[in-house]
Write a protein that binds this DNA or RNA. Structure first.
Lengths: 189, 189, 189, 189
DNA sequence: CATGAATGAGAGTTCATTCAT
DNA sequence: GATGAATGAACTCTCATTCAT
């Protein structure tokens, strides 16, 4: 509960002040706790930022993985559509949170989290792809990583451009087209 | 000349210490100049980082744009292949530079540069796409942005994974497949 | 208490090093606190100096005003004698403090304080003068300001000349003569 | 000529930026010379400021002394009127210059100049007073110093209040009244 | 356990002064 | 003699972290 408040406060301060100007005292103040308490839950500022990023990215990846699992055995288009829907929905559920977290995500240490979560996601994608009923892949690991990578930046661009629901739905369609087209191109069948 | 030394020093220190630990004195020392001189050329640290990012990203975008122009009037596959080749080559000419600059690129202020350069690139892509001999697009602007966005993250992943020339050549093929597939999917023809 | 220590330290450093050489670290050191603590109480160095001046000048003006009030209704000579006594006593209670504070008093920002306190003092003088039993003034505001102004520099000169109690008592007599003579000259009666 | 330009530039920068923000480069720029040249004429910044103050204060004191000499043998009122007229005229010939120079005058080193010039002025006053045809003084040195001191602050206040010619003429009358009254009070005759 | 005043290392930045051209 | 880029010591101020209460 306190941790949740701290997480939320971190996001708010990040949105208000940016990554460079954020301070532990500010975060604690906005969370309604003392700095001392903050340090009871996190060993240092870096760990706090990492945890916030971890949770957010983890949630998005979890949602995407779940969609991937549910799509096992279907065809390429269905797989891609399901995955894009889950990914974009999860990422844009609270667009301002995503926007706030793009900054610390790149900061030292936190980008390792992003990298690892991307790998976790790519693995689920790979496991899904091999079950596709209308395609097969000789370089499934690489294909999965390309696929996951390719959808990140367009989504970020849409969020930072301040897109609305309609934009995000359109984004889903294009990401589906992007990934379906790719998989067709590299499918062995 | 002094400015070049400062740019190079910034990249070196960034690679050695990361974004959080970089200091103006360190940069000046490694560039073989005094801090005072550094401040003669850049109003502040942020501006220096922004300039370094600007130059790097600008070069990559310039190279990509040039390839786009040269490919006007060809077919989709040739366009994508040419563009991917130029982009990946420019971005991986000195992989460690690219790797160093991913950090400040996300830092406040510098990400605006990245955003603008992306737009500049997307415009050139759009101008190329409308000349394609084997496809036509109803939503060229969106398609261009998606296309540019989709190739950024996979390339970054390849660089950060410490890929070699072979990996980068393979990357080109996949990015070509990715974009060709996408354009086929969304082509009106 | 900490604030008092900082005030006292500021005066000591000012006496030892002058206005140009004073640093926040020095002040903090001599006050036995850390620079950080100093900045917990004062937003910046300028504000600290201003506060020190404010307190000193405020005390002197308060003492003078009190004497003015007590002298309401008396004659000119008694008024001047009472006021000069209070002013010189307050200003020379710790001559070295006064001497130390002449420097920042002129520094930007702090001289505004001196100006305002002078005005406050002049108003009290004016209110006193209009009750004089042996004189009346047609330009009371101007007369009050001249009067307050005229006693400042001679007192400063006496302090900076390193005067002793005897000098200060002699100063009182002369300031009294100065102001009494003036008031007689400009009295309408 | 160059020195004059530097003096004038110093005053301009002082008026524009205050004492704390003044820099040698700024002064040189505004004077239309290089910093190097500035250092050809003055060993350091402090000496430059001191010279500017010296010249201004010296001029005022010179004018006042001249008036004192011309008034030898006259009566108290004529002496005071002549002196006040010369002093106020000299000090308010270019009010903004006086205003600009109040700041460095208090800064370390330059206030010694002010002190010495005050003494020089007081000596001329003393030499004048002993020739007064209608008064004699037992403590001429002290009286002279008080007299000189008493007129400084009211004049400064008038200048800083942005007074016009009319205000300055009124000031002369009051300073004359102030000093005449004083001299009458302390005259032995 | 919570608090938040105190700490102080360290960062960015300035600017008087120099000296090669 | 004039120039102004280069220097780097030194300053102000910040803020992650601690620990006595």
């Amino acid at each position: 509960m306190t941790i949740d408040a701290i997480f939320e406060a971190t996001i708010q301060v990040l949105l208000a002040n940016g990554l460079e100007a954020i301070t532990t005292v500010q975060i604690a103040d906005r969370a309604g706790v003392s700095v001392g308490s903050l340090y009871q839950y996190f060993p240092n500022k870096r760990a706090l930022l990492a945890a916030v990023v971890q949770r957010h990215v983890g949630e998005v990846v979890d949602a995407t993985i779940q969609a991937c699992r549910a799509a096992h055995g279907t065809d390429i288009r269905e797989m891609c559509a399901a995955m894009m829907s889950a990914f974009v929905d999860a990422k844009t559920r609270r667009p301002e949170v995503s926007r706030a977290l793009y900054l610390p995500s790149a900061a030292v240490n936190a980008d390792a989290i992003v990298r690892e979560e991307s790998i976790r996601c790519a693995q689920a994608v790979q496991q899904m792809l091999v079950t596709a009923c209308d395609a097969s892949f000789t370089q499934a690991p690489l294909v999965s990583r390309i696929l996951v990578g390719s959808i990140v930046a367009p989504t970020r661009a849409a969020i930072e451009a301040g897109g609305d629901r309609g934009d995000f739905e359109r984004l889903k369609l294009h990401l589906t087209a992007l990934t379906v087209g790719y998989l067709r191109e590299v499918s062995a069948k």
